[in-house]
């Protein structure tokens, strides 16, 4: 546990507007009840961490937030998930439009086998966010700067993205997600495939991203959750056990299961 981090962040706990309002969410994979009755309100401009033992449903819930579960034929989602008041599972909602506003970064860096420039420009191109090459250049540069990658790659934008190091690749993927100007950024264990130095860089970046987006991060590492997040949700066996400010969860857990997990007895 890193108490120093928690102390530093004590100033930053005032309530913010709700970005995502989820109530009574259930998810089934075929017969398997993966998420049971989860209600949670995610705040804007906040880093929210989902923690819990593996298989607890935290990644599943994350993937519901931009309907990535649609790609799995057997997955079924019920309940209400409101993004700025619109139910994202409404029949009229086009997941394509939703995902433009709720971006996602994956566990393993997955740059496209294209140039660095094209990787970042891909999203803006398909969503028509730039009218010409000059505008696109601006968008790409901003996104790469936003992902703290610009200085490292500005001289080799036409080289292939798969040639970068692991940490650079993951920041490229973040830049790619940031370039479409989403409102919410979902991160599914973004550091689990990275070495400690790259992890530190990405964590620093996440803290900066909070200025612009609401960030939801799934993580295996409690230290990481404590370092980067303001709010923490603890999942266990598909249930949301406890949700509150990161401070409270780590120092004053209400539920005995939470306490067992953060003290290392389960998980």
């Amino acid at each position: 546990m890193n108490d120093m981090y928690l102390a530093e962040r004590a100033v930053d706990t005032q309530a913010r507007p709700i970005k995502f309002k989820c109530s009574d969410v259930q998810v089934w994979y075929g017969d398997k009840h993966a998420i049971k009755d989860v209600s949670v309100d995610l705040e804007d401009k906040t880093v929210t961490a989902f923690i819990g033992p593996s298989g607890c449903g935290k990644s599943t819930f994350l993937r519901c937030l931009n309907r990535m579960n649609d790609t799995i034929p057997v997955a079924k989602v019920t309940g209400r998930m409101l993004l700025d008041g619109d139910d994202i599972y409404d029949r009229r909602v086009d997941p394509v439009q939703l995902r433009a506003r709720v971006g996602m970064v994956f566990q393993k860096p997955n740059p496209f086998p294209k140039s660095i420039y094209d990787n970042v420009a891909y999203g803006p191109k398909i969503h028509g966010l730039a009218r010409n090459k000059a505008e696109l250049d601006v968008v790409v540069e901003k996104a790469l700067r936003g992902a703290a990658l610009w200085d490292e790659v500005k001289d080799r934008l036409q080289e292939t993205g798969t040639g970068l190091s692991g940490g650079q690749q993951q920041r490229l993927c973040i830049a790619r997600a940031v370039a479409t100007a989403p409102e919410v950024l979902l991160m599914d264990e973004p550091c689990s495939a990275l070495d400690p130095i790259a992890t530190a860089q990405v964590e620093e970046l996440i803290d900066e991203l909070r200025e612009t987006f609401s960030v939801v991060i799934v993580t295996h590492s409690m230290q990481q959750a404590a370092r980067v997040s303001q709010k923490t949700a603890f999942f266990h066996l598909g249930n949301l056990v406890e949700y509150g400010s990161t401070d409270d969860i780590f120092t004053r857990p209400q539920d005995p299961r939470t306490e067992s997990y953060i003290s290392g007895r389960i998980g």
């Binding site: 939703l98 506003r101 601006v138 700067r145 936003g146 940031v178």
Partner: peptide
Amino acid sequence: PSNLPRPVGPGAPSAPQARSLLIADART
């Protein structure tokens, strides 16, 4: 209209999102 370039990245002014998810825009 969503084809206007919107502010991008940290540091840009974060204007409130004005689009409703329930209405598909022309581009979509």
